[in-house]
Design a protein around this nucleic acid. Structure first.
Length: 547
RNA sequence: UGGGGUGUCGCCAAGCGGUAAGGCACGGGAUUUUGAUUCCCGCAUUCGUAGGUUCGAAUCCUGCCACCCCAGCCA
């Protein structure tokens, strides 16, 4: 068998198993799954998990189920499943089937009865507090439940009564009979089913008992014929239990194997649902798709191309060591992608009027839409000799090595002419209000530059007559510092994280609202924005692109 | 003082007994009508630590040390 080259330890394991013939009975088909719980929105951490799972699927020509791990009706809803599906599709991942853990409720129940019949599960009447109290501690063994040795018949009867709704929430649970003295606390008779008289968003009130993750997940994997169940490190301690459930399920081999990897952490990015929800609920951001959010929809709105995110995940790699990736690494991937693909346009956030005193009439200037793409096309911009430039591109007191405009200095208006600033009109606030310049016709872009007229800098501009008014929302990172702010997170929020500018932009920016990038020539970095539906509103990228 | 994991450059990360890949960041230089891009060049005599085995170790063995995870009827 010809095996693909393994790019990480997971693929290495798969290769070894394939080589050993572990999956011959299923035609060497690898099956994986991506199993979010529909109780929140997908974020960049999930993207890493998707890249790993979809990556395995593609590499081995296998199958992947998008599975909603919906076994806790109190938290789940269609709102989330829809957003998850939407996010997966936007990222361009193609799954084979959309499935739900709740599809398996009948089968799961049946297997639970099998455990009872096999004498490895029992109904326990202990209260939640009592169970906690008898579970023991990290260093002490737990105590066996007094209900642990009920007969198979009694367990079956009780379990069926639980299912039939005879008992209130919390009155009874079904437990696995494993080992109360196990050093692995997960193995101390974990709960399989709990009673919850809560309607489920899919099954309604058909059930009043719901399976626990530790049971439902491995068994769902086995039901689907998953060969590799890839999850994050915190489930390592659950693996023995995973195997315990799967081995006793009676489901056909090959049984799924759980492999854990380190989850993604990025400096200054909080990904916990609890935290993100707070930001939304308490109005720190405009919603789950706010460009400052690390959610998939937030990233989309920020103008981040899916391919940049995939590249980032590929760069970061898959390993088991706890790590925090520097956000600069993400930014680099985004910049790379934008540099390669984004169409160019000019805009000024904070306009300063520049009038050319010796210019008459108007003309068209030609611009490349994307200098990196030979066939990127061109666009025309009107030039009337009266323009707006970025306020930062002019300085009353230029620092040493300043390359842009100052009084008496020259600068090139990109793709137009070199101008010299002759006069500065100072406003009441002491700041420059308008610049009066001379332009040099012979320096028109494209013509051979006369040696006597030079400009060190090149700045962007928007024509005063043809440029359109634009509102910019500029976002900064939500957190000033610290990875996990915990309870006092609110104090660390940067209240200036959203700033409004009223600037100018060339009309081209609005031709098709979304995902176009513009750049500030002065800084030479890219800012991307996802155009909102309202034309006058441009959302610029957060500060992370600043140097 | 239980169990399960992990420790390779500032941050990720290859490496699987034959003499430390790559990316990000950083520094230097060249080209440039974006202080961007592109392009060169530099950036771990050393792999948590102390020993041992070996002709040879980041890789094998032993002991220490540090950090992470686990005591939800959440996932």
């Amino acid at each position: 068998m010809k095996l693909p080259e393994a790019n990480n330890f997971i693929e290495q394991i798969i290769n070894e198993e394939l080589e050993a013939g572990k999956f011959e009975s299923v035609g060497n088909k690898i099956q994986v799954r991506f199993p979010p719980e529909p109780n929140g929105y997908l974020h960049i951490g999930h993207i890493k998990a998707m890249c790993i799972n979809f990556g395995v699927k593609d590499k081995y020509n296998g199958k992947l189920n998008l599975r909603m791990d919906d076994t806790n009706p109190a938290k789940e809803d269609y709102e989330y499943v829809n957003s998850i599906v939407e996010a997966v599709k936007w990222l361009g991942f193609e799954y084979d089937k959309l499935v739900f853990a709740s599809d398996y409720y009948d089968k799961l129940y049946e297997i639970a009865e099998k455990y009872i019949l096999d004498g490895v599960a029992y109904v326990c009447d202990l209260s939640a507090e009592e169970i906690t109290a008898t579970r023991g501690t990290l260093t002490e063994a737990g105590k066996e439940s007094p209900y642990r040795n009920r007969s198979v018949e009694e367990n079956l009867k009780l379990f069926r009564e639980m299912k039939a709704g005879k008992y209130p929430d919390g009155a009874k649970v079904l437990r696995a009979k494993i080992d109360m003295a196990s050093p692995n606390i997960n193995m101390r008779d974990p709960i399989i089913y709990r009673i919850a008289h809560v309607p489920h968003y899919r099954t309604g009130d058909k059930w009043c008992i719901y399976p626990m993750y530790d049971f439902a997940h491995p068994v769902s994997d086995a039901i689907e014929g998953i060969t590799h169940s890839l999850c994050s490190l915190e489930f390592e301690n659950h693996r023995p239990l995973y195997n315990w459930f799967v081995e006793r399920s009676g489901l056909p081999k090959p049984l799924p194997r759980q492999i854990e990897f380190a989850r993604l952490n990025i400096t200054n990015m909080l990904m916990s649902k609890r935290y993100l929800k707070k930001l939304v609920d308490e109005g720190f951001v405009r919603g789950w798709d706010d460009p400052r959010m690390p959610t998939v929809m937030g990233l989309k709105k920020r103008g981040v191309p899916p391919e940049a995110l995939k590249k980032f995940c590929a760069d970061v790699g898959v390993a088991k060591a706890y790590s925090v990736v520097n956000q600069a690494q993400l930014d680099s991937c985004i910049r790379d992608n934008l540099n390669e693909n984004a169409e160019r346009a000019m805009a000024v956030l904070n306009p300063l009027k520049l009038t050319i005193t010796n210019y008459v009439g108007e003309e068209n200037l030609s611009f490349e839409k994307n200098p990196l793409k030979q066939d990127g096309g061109e666009r025309d911009i009107k030039f009337t000799g009266s323009v707006y430039i970025e306020r930062d591109d002019f300085s009353l007191n230029p620092p040493p090595k300043y390359k842009r405009l100052c009084k008496g200095g020259t600068v090139r208006l990109k793709s137009a002419y070199i101008v010299r600033c002759d006069e500065v009109k100072i406003g009441a606030d002491g700041e420059a209000e308008e610049l009066f310049c001379t332009y040099f016709p012979e320096t028109r872009s494209g013509s051979a530059q006369p040696s006597e007229i030079k400009a060190k800098g090149v700045i962007q501009w928007v024509d005063a007559k043809y440029g359109v008014d634009a509102e910019y929302r500029q976002y900064k990172p939500l957190l000033k510092d610290e990875q996990y702010p915990d309870q006092d997170y609110a104090e660390r929020l940067d209240t200036e994280s959203e700033k409004i500018f009223y600037g100018k932009a060339e009309p081209y920016l609005f031709e098709n609202g979304e995902g176009k990038a513009y750049q500030l020539i002065r800084c030479g970095y890219y800012k991307s924005f996802a155009g909102e539906k309202v034309l006058s509103e441009i959302v610029s990228l957060k500060d992370s692109f600043n140097k």
